[in-house]
């Protein structure tokens, strides 16, 4: 097949292109993963489909119920939106950790999700915030919860001709707070050894009324650690609760040994980081009360 480069202007054009070329085509937004994979010989698509010229993929809308983030919005541009940073500090912390400033100029939350790395930084934060993915395909639109978008390392629910259009995050209530922490051996420029996203709500008494804990890099996909979330519900975020959530996260983690860390190490750090992340999210939630 002849190599090509396409810049569709509408979702319909894009889905048609993707359907026509099948596996020979690869859509991209920032290209920060794709170009590295091409360089390493892991992917060699014939047709490169640049999604950045489709207006809907670049939208950012902060509504009264929902925040809509276009799949191709650069993470740098998201960070420049003060209202978004105020509403979803944890998600933005996660987005900010995707690579250097240079990477931030190109990387997107949508791309991070579609690359389907178990260690993707923004995904635990999306899952914790109960984000929903808007997917467009030849047969129209469908919604997929962020927690179910990736089906394994490098694979997603996207079918032939489908593409991710946007992420929809419920607008957090004032008494909610989110946070994201990751562990890396350096201070920057690393892939998460463990990543933890937490979103929780505290009522006026400080009782945790809702919580979601998501763990990255400790399983083939991001783990929606419901037992950890449950450990927080119905009481204050006190030492005992932190101990419970830490232990539950450790239990929920199913890591492997690899060059970035041993399974035992990852399990331990998942517990430590979960406790620390919950503390930050709880502080933020309390500040909203």
């Amino acid at each position: 097949m002849q190599a090509g480069f396409e810049q569709p202007r509408t979702i319909e054009e894009a889905t048609a292109l993707l359907q026509k070329h099948g596996d020979a085509a690869r859509p991209f937004a920032g290209g920060t993963d794709l170009l590295v994979q091409m360089r390493g010989g892991m992917r060699s698509p014939d047709i490169l489909v640049d999604l950045k010229r489709i207006p809907e993929l670049g939208q950012l809308e902060i509504g009264s119920d929902e925040i809509v983030i276009g799949a191709a919005c650069s993470t740098a541009s998201l960070r420049e939106n003060a209202e978004l940073v105020r509403l979803l500090p944890g998600l933005l912390e996660a987005a900010e950790l995707i690579g250097s400033e240079q990477i931030q100029g190109r990387s997107s939350i949508g791309g991070n999700l579609c690359n389907a790395s178990p260690a993707a930084d923004s995904v635990p934060a999306l899952v914790a915030n109960s984000a929903v993915c808007s997917v467009a395909g030849p047969d129209g639109r469908r919604d997929v919860p962020a927690a179910e978008f990736s089906t394994g390392p490098g694979s997603t629910v996207l079918g032939s001709g489908e593409l991710l259009v946007s992420l929809r995050v419920p607008r957090p209530a004032p008494d909610a707070g989110d946070a994201y922490l990751r562990f890396i051996p350096r201070s920057e420029m690393d892939i998460a050894v463990v990543g933890v996203g937490v979103a929780l709500t505290l009522d006026a008494d400080g009782t945790c009324t809702a919580a979601r804990v998501a763990l990255g890099a400790v399983g083939p996909t991001v783990i929606d650690a419901t037992t950890a979330a449950t450990a927080l519900l119905g009481g204050p975020i006190d030492t005992a609760a932190l101990e419970r959530v830490s232990e539950a996260a450790r239990e929920a983690a199913r890591p492997i040994d690899d060059k970035r860390g041993t399974a035992a190490y990852r399990k331990h750090v998942a517990g430590v980081l979960t406790r620390r992340t919950v503390e930050i999210a709880a502080r933020r939630a309390a500040e909203g009360n």
Binding site: Q7, T32, L35, R39, G40, S100, Q102, I103, R106, M189
Partner: peptide, 27 residues
Amino acid sequence: CATGDCGACSVTLNGRLVCSCLVLAAE
């Protein structure tokens, strides 16, 4: 490095800092 890890290829694209090794020329 050609993989976005060293920044030696830094340029700006529409004023935004990027690694030119991770931008397609056609873009």
